[in-house]
């Protein structure tokens, strides 16, 4: 059984990392990052089966692809705190000559990253390709991916969603961060997408909801259930219900902090709501 207190402490520390990183360079995307902190912490500490060290091919281990690359702060924080690279390197986020680019990339050789993302809608195709290579290699490990809900407005996703079920890519778990916000407003204001569950089901996927996407225990339970549904001829979609900006009261339930950094005062307020647990970078 996972030690939930330890994971919650880690989540709190990750939230601090996120807003400190974004504040320092006065740019980046705190809202979606905060909303997915529990997911990333659970993924990298309880769910993914990974080998020591990092190599691009990832044979014999689970793989994760982030499609909505703008939530790089949470990705970097969790990767660093899982040992992929020095935690101090979080200091270099978005700075010149850094491996921690605004959006994740393989280009600078940052351990943990296997594809560049940022231009939206491309990650599911990549995850499918990696999953099909696992099958060719008789590697029974899984491929996970994460996508924004607004990101589903990009058409390439639907090419990928159609393909994955048609070709029985059943070693893939694609999670949709259902925070119902995007840059210009709520997803319902910008472009209502109707039932995402019904759409995935109509395309032949197995779909399950994690209603409490900001609860580590619920995320672990839901993702383990998702894992149990792999290998049955269908790709698996997890609808992760989250709150954008979770954990910092004035950032929650709004699209306003999608891509905006807190000022000094707002940072202090946010940090006060998330006391240091494992030590700041």
């Amino acid at each position: 059984m996972p030690n939930i207190k330890e994971l919650n402490d880690l989540t709190t520390q990750v939230r601090r990392d996120i807003i400190r990183m974004v504040h320092k360079v006065n740019s980046g995307h705190p809202g979606g990052s905060l909303g997915c902190a529990e997911f990333f912490v659970s993924l990298y500490n309880e769910l993914l089966e990974t080998k020591e060290g990092f190599d691009m091919d990832g044979i014999g281990e689970d793989l994760f692809f982030l499609s909505n690359g703008h939530i790089s702060p949470v990705y970097y924080s969790v990767l660093a705190r899982a040992g992929y690279f020095p935690i101090e390197e979080l200091n270099t986020f978005r700075l010149i000559n850094s491996r921690l680019q605004g959006h994740p990339t393989t280009h600078e050789g940052l351990p943990g990253i296997r594809i560049a993302s940022g231009s939206l809608g491309q990650g599911m195709s990549v995850a499918i390709g990696a999953a099909q290579t696992k099958k060719l290699n008789n590697d029974d490990h899984l491929v996970y991916s994460l996508h924004g809900d607004g990101e589903l407005q990009e058409g390439q996703n639907w090419e990928a969603i159609m393909y994955a079920s048609a070709k029985k890519v059943d070693n893939l778990i694609s999670t949709i961060d259902l925070n119902k916000q995007q840059i210009d407003g709520s997803t319902d204001d910008v472009l209502p997408m109707g039932s995402i569950r019904a759409k995935f089901e109509a395309f032949g996927w197995t779909v399950l909801d994690i209603e409490e996407g900001n609860n580590v225990e619920a995320v672990i339970k839901g993702m383990k259930e998702a894992k149990s549904l792999t290998g049955k001829g269908k790709p698996v979609c997890v609808l992760l219900h989250t709150v954008m900006g979770n954990g910092i009261d004035f950032m929650m339930h709004t699209h306003a902090w999608h891509g905006k950094a807190p000022n000094d005062e707002q940072l202090e307020k946010g940090l006060a709501q998330n006391p240091e647990t494992l030590g700041d970078y």
């Binding site: 296997r114 594809i115 990549v126 290579t133 290699n137």
Partner: peptide, 9 residues
């Protein structure tokens, strides 16, 4: 995209 993913492995 699938081609990019297939290289991984």
């Amino acid at each position: 995209g699938i081609a990019a993913g297939l290289t991984i492995g």
